[in-house]
Amino acid sequence: MSFQNVDLVDWTEFDSVREELGSNFARILRYYSEDGIKSVEAIEEAIRNKVSAALIVPAHTLKGESLQFGAIRVSMIAEKIEMTARHLVEIQQTPEELVPDAAELRPALKETMERLEEATNPLVQRHHGIDERHAANQKFGRL
């Protein structure tokens, strides 16, 4: 199953966490980006090494952290990898069937981070389907 038709970000969830974290938001978003890359690398390595058990923790971590920021597509891919890996461990199988999902994960994380950066950087011109309320600060000071 491809996740291309799933929204990248739930902007309501993103706005909520941004408000809750306040001044800590930018730092924690940076941690999410760094941790996300590490999780993707661990998942890719586990796939290359054909070790189903090694997929579970990084996929679980990425799923949870992504949900916190509203990164829906990344979270869904990570959840599929985690749940399938758990099943594969139970039946003692290697994770070849997860190669397409793992291949989707890095580009999804990259695109998600680009969108989140756009939404948080006041110097970036808003576009890419972000609704008008996210672009409101772009009109400030304009006649």
Rank of each mutant, 00 (worst) to 15 (best):
R27L: 10
A136I: 14
T61F: 03
L98Y: 04
G22K: 00
E117Q: 09
Q4E: 15
A136E: 15
R48Y: 08
E111H: 15
Y32T: 09
S16R: 13
L105N: 04
V6E: 05
A119K: 10
V9S: 00
R126M: 15
V124Q: 14
Y32C: 07
Q138I: 12
R106D: 05
Q93W: 04
P107Q: 05
R73H: 07
T12M: 05
Q93D: 12
S16N: 11
T120C: 10
E20V: 11
V17R: 00
D10Q: 09
A54P: 03
T120K: 00
E104R: 04
M1P: 14
D10W: 07
M76C: 06
H60N: 08
F25D: 05
Q138M: 11
R126H: 08
N137S: 14
S66N: 00
L105F: 10
A26M: 14
E79M: 09
L105Q: 06
E45R: 11
E132M: 10
A135I: 15
L105H: 04
Q92M: 12
S23Q: 14
E79V: 04
A103E: 13
S33Y: 05
N121L: 14
E45P: 04
L21Y: 06
A59Y: 01
E20S: 11
L123V: 07
T94F: 12
L116Q: 05
A71N: 01
Q68C: 12
V57Q: 02
A71I: 01
R48W: 02
K110R: 09
R133V: 06
H134C: 10
E44M: 03
N137W: 15
F140Y: 12
E44W: 01
H127V: 10
Q125M: 14
V6T: 13
T61N: 07
D10N: 13
I77L: 05
L98V: 08
F3D: 03
V89S: 06
L8I: 00
D35V: 09
F3K: 02
V74T: 05
L29R: 07
F3L: 06
I91K: 12
M113V: 14
E114C: 07
T12E: 12
I47G: 01
I91G: 00
M76D: 03
D7I: 15
G129H: 10
H127Q: 08
L67Q: 04
N24Y: 11
F14S: 01
E111V: 14
D15C: 00
V124N: 10
L123G: 07
H134R: 14
T61H: 04
E96C: 03
H87W: 03
L55R: 02
H128P: 00
A119Q: 07
